[in-house]
Simulated scan of single mutants.
Amino acid sequence: MNHELARLEHLSLGAMAQVLLTTQALPLQATRSSAQINQALGTTPRHAWIVRRWLAALSRAGLLHGDDGHLAWHGTPPEAAVDDLPRLYAALGFPASMATLHARVIAQLPALLRDQTALAPLLFEAGEPVAVLGAYQRNRYTAAINAALGERARQVEAAGESLQVLELGGGAGATTAAVLAALDGRAMDYRFSDISPLFTIAAQRQFRLEPGMSFTQLDLDRDLVAQGVDAHGLDLVIAGNVLHNARDLRRSLGHLRACLRPGGTLLFSESIADNPAMLTFMHLLLSPAEGAPPRASDEVFLSAEQWRQALLDEGFELTGLWPTDDQPLAAAGQRLFQAVERGQ
C-alpha cells in the first residue's frame, strides 16, 4: 500500500512540473523566484501559497534547486502519468470516482490557479457534496485512524451517568460512524456538529436512529459556550481532520478546553505534513475566499511537536500519538492525537 502511495505522490509532483513547464512559468534552463513563477503562471493572489507549496515539495524531492530564493530544474522533471490514477486510488482503498475527479482537476490546474474556474463546482458535478467528501474520506489510512480514534473514545470514562460527547466538524460522518460503532451500548449524549447545515442535515438523516444523538451547527472559530455548549460539561471532544481550519488555533483550543470537564479528553486526527496529491487537488479549497485577507502562513499543517506545544500552551497534555513514525501507516502523514485537559 505504501508503494502505491509513493507512486501517487510522484505522479502528483509530475502534475506540478507539467503545469510549470507547459505554462512556461518555470521553463527548463530558467531560474526564477517564487514571485516570478506565480506572476508568469498568472496565479490569483489567494492561490499563490499553493504554488509556493508546490515549489517546496519539488525542492524536497530534489527536482528543483536554487540559491537566494531563485529556483531552477534539477535533472529531468517527472511526467504526470494520469492514466495510472485509477489503479493507485483503488489500491489505497478510495472509490473509483476519486481517481476520475483528481484527473479532471489536474487537467484544469492552470485555470484553477488563475480563478478562471473553481474547484467546488467540479466537485459538485461529480456528485452531491456530502457524497464527494465521504468518498474523499474513504480510504485505508483514514479508516485505520478513525478505527483507532473510536477505540480510544471507548476507553474514556464518564463523569456522570452518561458519556458527554461533542464532535466538531463532523462533515460526511466517517469519524462519527467509527466512534458510534466503538461506543455501541454506552449511555451517552452525542452532539454532532458542523459549520454547514448541509452536513448536519445529512448526519441527521444518517444517524437519527442512534440513541442519544443530537445535531447542531457550531463554528470552531467562535466561543462554543456562547453557541450553547455547556461550560466544563463534556467528557470527550472529537475532531476528525478539522482543527487545521481554525483561523486562530490557540484561541479555538481555548474554546474547546472551556467545554471540557477537568481531566476531559480531546481526540483529534490531523495531517502533519503536505501531501503532494492533495496539493494538486483538495488543498485548493483551503485558499482564502476572494477578497479575504491572505493566509498568515503557507504552512497548513503543524508537525507533531508543534501540536504538542500548542496543546500545552492552552492547558492540555498530549498523552497519545498514533501511528508512530516507524509504523507503515505513518507514511500517509496522518496522526491521531489524544490529549487531556489539565484542570481548570
Rank of each mutant, 00 (worst) to 15 (best):
A17R: 08
V19T: 04
V19A: 05
L20C: 06
T22M: 11
T23S: 03
Q24D: 08
L26D: 00
L28M: 05
T31E: 15
S33P: 10
S34A: 14
A35Q: 09
I37T: 03
I37P: 12
N38M: 10
A40R: 12
L41V: 02
G42S: 04
T44P: 09
T44G: 12
P45T: 02
P45G: 03
A48R: 13
A48I: 00
W49Y: 07
R52D: 13
R53N: 15
L55G: 06
A56S: 14
S59Y: 15
A61P: 11
G62R: 05
L63S: 03
D67F: 13
D68P: 09
D68Y: 15
G69R: 05
G69C: 04
L71Q: 08
A72F: 14
W73V: 02
W73L: 00
T76Y: 11
T76F: 11
T76R: 15
P77A: 02
A80L: 10
D83A: 10
L85A: 09
P86Q: 04
R87H: 11
R87Y: 12
L88E: 03
A90S: 11
A99F: 14
L101Y: 10
I106F: 15
L109M: 02
P110H: 02
R114M: 07
Q116C: 09
Q116T: 02
P121R: 00
F124P: 09
E125F: 01
A126K: 05
G127R: 00
P129T: 02
A131C: 13
G134M: 03
A135R: 09
Y136M: 14
N139F: 06
N139L: 01
Y141E: 13
Y141K: 09
A143K: 15
A143R: 15
I145H: 06
I145P: 06
